[in-house]
Design a protein around this nucleic acid. Structure first.
Lengths: 237, 237
DNA sequence: CGCTCTTATTTCCTATAGGATCTTCGATAT
DNA sequence: ATATCGAAGATCCTATAGGAAATAAGAGCG
């Protein structure tokens, strides 16, 4: 039983065809260039992806959970309609609850959390600067926007991981797709980006302060600001 | 366009075979007489239920979300192992967050909430008495235990409905199966039942009091008590 | 001209079949 | 007796095919 240094043999996360199909369709939906209400024909998708309908069918069941597609029995799947005003409000309400609670729980492990959180903060700051720089010279490329939001998400996920509660984390993930799709919209201007970066910094400092209630206050303030900035977007339409 | 009194034509919730299969397997799992770790063979299930593997496969994807079954790609599904001590703690942590938040939100609509909540309370009280009566004369039949827990669940769901937040509600449902399975265990004695009923009453009175922070305090206290009673169960093993 | 009924096509839904992989059991060698 | 190897069985996974329902288009009638 010589334990060879071949780690990862058991870690090779085996993924069936269904998982790959799921990723592909999810990416397509998050890309955002499919109109809401569009029918997602199983057979057509299967042909396009060059697989049989069965794995596509399984992937769609999984996608139902994300809220990105709707299903009507015997009538097929459709791309979910965009979030209405009420749903947007409810989504932020739920997100506020989750983020504040995760932050509160993560405060117990502030020591372990701080190093990776500082790293995530630095990453987000770099992406922010790149976006701001581009904003000065016209439209921001999609790839940059994407990298920016990814770094933002990673910051928050770092906190959720430190919460030590798998259920809270799962709930956040289940809202993730909707959240992502909502903010897919646009980056309004350099002010938003700067504000977000500053608020992230404030959260890290709150964790470092040692005040046990400071982090959740900072997070609450951040999410409320994100909400307000998003609402301004909608109103501007 | 004579609107005939045939209501329900549009309300006939059409359900595919997949949905019925899902219900059947879910019920089997909640019944609790299947050992954790047991393999859930797709083909075998399909034969037992006298359907083809495809709808079974879809139902299993959906069940994965409830946490009642685990999946390993290319190796099939298994009945999920029972909740460990940590998971139990995390589950209650998450539930506490959800219930308190839902209560807080529902306070905005206390007027609409109170009538149905009083009804749910009365129902729960009746079931409590039936259980207590039986407890005096030996073991409680499964059907009674079940009816009791259903009435308990209905009380809480009434509050979640009044929260007006579909995402919070969905999160609660997604924890529902695990919660149900956990407390499936036993009813320890008449004291637990009486305490739970009294706490429910206190929650209703808190809603009726007009004090905006009273309901969430009452709910927090209730869930913490439920947790403590459940932990005593585990320790008693 | 508008409405209804019919017809055809598309699509979902389920069933059956076969290849790849994992598990289990038994045999063999050390 | 233990461990290793090999083969048979079971199971997952994917593909193909056909029936049922829904959508869309067109003909006939008021």
């Amino acid at each position: 039983m010589t334990s060879l240094p071949i780690r990862g043999v058991g870690e090779f996360e085996r993924r069936g065809l269904r998982d790959r199909v799921y990723d592909l369709i999810l990416e397509m939906l998050l890309e955002g260039d499919v109109e809401p209400g569009t029918r997602l024909s199983i057979d057509t998708l299967a042909k396009d992806l060059d697989v049989s309908p069965t794995p596509v069918r399984e992937a769609m069941v999984q996608l139902e959970r994300t809220g990105l597609v709707t299903r009507e029995a015997l009538r097929g799947y459709r791309v979910a309609p965009p979030l209405g005003e009420e749903q947007l409000a409810e989504l932020f309400e739920a997100r506020l609850m989750l983020e504040v609670e995760a932050t509160r729980l993560a405060t117990r492990r502030a020591d372990e959390l701080l190093p990776p959180l500082r790293e995530a903060l630095a990453h987000h700051a770099r992406e922010s600067e790149r976006v701001v720089e581009r904003l000065g010279r016209g439209a921001v490329p999609l790839s940059l926007t994407r990298a920016y939001f990814d770094s933002d998400l990673e910051f928050h996920r770092t906190i959720f991981r430190a919460s030590g509660n798998r259920y809270v984390q799962e709930m956040y993930d289940s809202l993730g797709a909707l959240t992502h799709r909502m903010r897919q919209a646009v980056i309004r201007g350099p002010r938003d980006v700067h504000e977000a970066a500053a608020e992230h910094r404030a959260i890290v400092e709150a964790f470092a302060s040692g005040d046990p209630s400071a982090p959740e206050r900072a997070m609450r303030s951040h999410i409320e600001n994100v909400r307000d900035r998003a609402v301004e977007d909608v109103d501007a339409e």
